[in-house]
Simulated scan of single mutants.
Amino acid sequence: MSWTQAELDALKAAYASGTTRVTYDGKTVEYDSEAALLRRIQTIESAISAAGGNPRPVAGYASFGRGDR
């Protein structure tokens, strides 16, 4: 599914104002809780980030060697 930046902006504005009703692109959606709204924001941010070639950072381990072995 493709999400738009306008939808993400509207969701963030609603979350910041403490409401669960969001209107964007002529659509109105009411979420059952702020937690559901926040999950939607995180889902869209992840999808937009992945589509833009900016994958989420991956933790790794550094290793060191003495070079003589």
Score class of each variant (00 low, 15 high):
59 A>S: 09
10 A>R: 02
56 R>E: 15
30 E>P: 09
57 P>G: 05
11 L>A: 13
60 G>R: 12
47 A>I: 15
65 G>Q: 08
2 S>F: 05
36 A>I: 00
11 L>T: 07
29 V>P: 01
34 E>G: 15
29 V>T: 11
69 R>G: 13
51 A>S: 13
5 Q>A: 10
29 V>Y: 05
11 L>D: 06
29 V>I: 15
43 T>D: 11
7 E>G: 09
32 D>Q: 11
26 G>V: 00
16 A>P: 05
51 A>D: 15
14 A>V: 08
69 R>D: 15
43 T>E: 10
24 Y>L: 04
38 L>D: 10
31 Y>M: 08
6 A>M: 03
63 S>Q: 09
36 A>Q: 02
19 T>K: 15
40 R>T: 14
15 Y>D: 13
23 T>Y: 07
68 D>M: 05
37 L>S: 05
2 S>G: 07
40 R>H: 12
52 G>L: 02
10 A>L: 03
67 G>P: 04
50 A>C: 05
21 R>C: 02
3 W>F: 08
36 A>T: 06
4 T>Y: 05
18 G>S: 10
65 G>H: 15
55 P>I: 02
15 Y>R: 14
55 P>G: 01
4 T>G: 03
25 D>H: 10
56 R>N: 10
11 L>W: 09
42 Q>G: 09
40 R>D: 13
36 A>Y: 00
62 A>I: 14
50 A>T: 09
38 L>H: 11
51 A>R: 13
9 D>F: 07
25 D>Y: 05
16 A>K: 12
51 A>P: 11
39 R>A: 03
48 I>T: 05
6 A>D: 11
14 A>Y: 01
49 S>N: 05
24 Y>T: 06
45 E>V: 13
25 D>M: 10
55 P>A: 13
35 A>Y: 11
52 G>M: 01
24 Y>G: 03
69 R>A: 07
38 L>T: 04
24 Y>D: 02
44 I>K: 15
16 A>W: 01
54 N>L: 07
66 R>C: 06
18 G>E: 11
34 E>L: 14
42 Q>P: 00
12 K>M: 02
2 S>L: 01
26 G>W: 06
53 G>N: 04
16 A>V: 03
